[in-house]
Amino acid sequence: MPKVTIDGIEIEVPKGTTILQAARMIGPEVAPPTMCYYSKLKTSGGYCRTCIVKVTKGSAQNPNPMPKPVASCRTEVMDGMEVQNVTSPEIVEARKGVVEFLLINHPLDCPVCDQAGECKLQDLGYEHGSVKTRYEFKRREYDMIDIGDKIKLHMNRCILCYRCVKTCEQLTDGRVHGVVHRGDAAEISTYIEKAINNDFSGNVIDVCPVGALTDRTFRFKSRVWFTKPVDAHRKCDKCCGKTRVWLKGEEVLRVTARKDQWDEVEDFICNSCRYDHKKKSDWTIEGPSPISRQSVISQNHYEHLNELKVQALKQQKALGFMDINKRP
């Protein structure tokens, strides 16, 4: 099994693993951010360039460094490979550049965007973006398109990650959805605004890293951080039936697929589960969904509270603080 060193941490991974997957095995500290790569979709990745890393040693046999930064999501590891991600100032700078490029034509309409709070571009911009834009020209504009009665396409926000195209190609049959035009005029479109009409079309909403594809049944209903995500399931003959139900009080505002640590869908769900079961009684609720502590969505959820307390205590002890629970 090849051994690879990422940011000074060595790990042994199965043959055929990409640098990104190896980095994810080590942990979120060294895992490069991704906007277009999706582990559940074949041939995805390579487009957004946020996951670029520097290969300082190609392999044990050929120790030469690679001349250019490579997309970690599409480059397989070799035995003895050495990779720099956050430890390379060059890469950090290059990533800043990529984020700037992604943002120059993005409308930054987060205050009215349904994706706000669970948007990958927001996270990326927060981590790598600059405070002020250097772009002083008019941003690209498109008209909003309704793809069927359930999905809204807001092309202004799109970063052309191709995830939805791959989803449509790989989950459903009949190619009705793709990219038209080229360069910075490229846009996602359906065949003359034809509706995407199949049982799994709703998944394009889940894979979209930004607010370009949103759920029309949830549009402007609530900010995501005012809703409470719970894992739930029902018996479904089309899909696994395991979903995440977003509650506000007793009301089901929307249903999405469950996402893992990397914000990727665990199992794709069908449109029936997504759109037609908006009553709490339709679902068997398993419990609160695990949400990252950093996420604004976890603001309303205290399931990690005990864990948090323990962590805080540990930190305080380490720093030599007084234990507030044992006041004299």
């Binding site: 487009y47 957004c48 490029f101 772009y135 035009h181 360069g183 490229a186």
Partner: peptide, 21 residues
């Protein structure tokens, strides 16, 4: 180059247009 960029990866798609402007 702005006109001929394929639009697949972000630095070229956005950067070529920016430079032209």
């Amino acid at each position: 180059y702005h006109h001929e960029s394929c639009g697949q990866c972000s630095p070229c798609r956005e950067g070529t247009g920016w430079m032209e402007k």
